[in-house]
Computed example of a mutant assay.
Amino acid sequence: MAGLLDNVNQRTQLVGKNRLELLLFHLRSRQKFGINVFKVKEVLLCPPLSSLPESEAVVRGVAHIRGETISIIDLGFAIGLPPMKEENLSSSFVIITEYNRRTQGFLVNSVDRIANLNWEEVAPPPEGAGKDVYLTAVTKIEDQLVEIIDVEKVLADVTPLREDVDESIVAKGSETDRSDSLPILVVDDSMIARRQVERCLNAVGMSVITMNDGRQALDYLNTLTADGSRATDHIAMMISDVEMPEMDGYTLVSRCKESPQLNDLYAMLHTSLSGVFNGNMVKKVGADDFMAKFSPDELAERVMTILDQA
């Protein structure tokens, strides 16, 4: 266990083509859950927690870690399991993560190990799971089902991000008539993230087409251009998450840039991997831009600038 904890931070610096590393952990049962190592800053035994008045019940308190005050969220409780018992806190673990430009800790019962696999081995949640399910994907490791939690949905429920675009930016967007503009393709496996981006772009007069993962998006683009046309005849630009089942954003962009029909489509990577993001990988796959999630004002202004310069 000590070796696992010591090496987590180093391994967050690794990015492989269509590969991911999952930190596996347990909540209240033998069921294994996973979180992408690239979003993990540190794993440690649960430190002493200070109460946070008027906070959500799932926030068990705050901890002072390496000079920073961090909210500690009971992850099991956040996804509908019973809250962790007070007497179990000292033997539990906290996974310190960075999502959407914010640092927070997730309280879990135990940490298992790191598993290395290919995104093609990861599938979306099964149909019929419901729109409120806290899963973004599932996979099998050694014949055991591993559920990958939609952390963005958890955080949206616990500490919601501002999703509305500032009125001044909306007014700026209304100065240009975009009623005849081509739609923007948004690719993200998180329902919450898709909703946030779509709402943001709709606010400044842009239409949006959404896809759930890179494979689905690439198939869609290839279908559009099967008649010999180019992607830019149909789509204004593509905004893609990096972490997605079936095919990640790196691979999606790389495949687009290799295709004569798709290679001039403007591709922005839009990801919550803000703290450990590998800029060299963006250049390697040929992405045109990168933005850390999620600032509605910044995203709206950046997209308007890109389209106005096209």
Rank of each mutant, 00 (worst) to 15 (best):
D6T: 11
D6S: 15
N7V: 02
G16T: 07
N18D: 12
R19F: 05
L20W: 00
E21S: 15
L23N: 02
L24A: 06
F25T: 02
L27K: 01
R30N: 14
K32H: 13
G34N: 03
I35P: 02
I35C: 07
V40M: 06
C46M: 05
L49M: 02
S50E: 07
S50K: 12
S51W: 05
S55Q: 06
V59P: 12
A63M: 01
G67Q: 06
G67F: 05
E68Y: 04
E68C: 05
I70A: 07
P83N: 13
P83W: 04
K85D: 10
N109K: 15
V111Q: 08
A115C: 06
E120L: 00
E121M: 10
V122L: 02
P124D: 12
P125C: 11
G130I: 04
T136G: 13
E142C: 02
V146Q: 04
D150W: 07
K153A: 10
K153M: 10
D157N: 14
E167V: 14
E167T: 14
S168D: 14
V170Y: 11
E175P: 02
D177I: 08
D177G: 10
R178S: 12
R178P: 01
I184T: 10
I184C: 08
I184W: 04
V186R: 09
M191F: 04
V197W: 15
C200P: 08
I209C: 05
M211E: 12
N212H: 10
R215T: 09
A217S: 08
L218P: 15
L218G: 07
Y220V: 06
L221C: 05
N222H: 10
R230T: 08
R230S: 11
A231H: 11
I235N: 00
S240K: 05
D241F: 05
M244F: 05
P245R: 06
M247V: 01
R255I: 02
P260F: 03
P260H: 08
N263K: 15
D264F: 07
L269I: 15
L269R: 06
H270N: 12
T271C: 01
S274Q: 09
V276A: 12
V276I: 09
N278V: 10
N280H: 07
K284V: 06
V285R: 01
D288V: 00
F290A: 00
S295Q: 09
R302G: 09
M304Q: 01
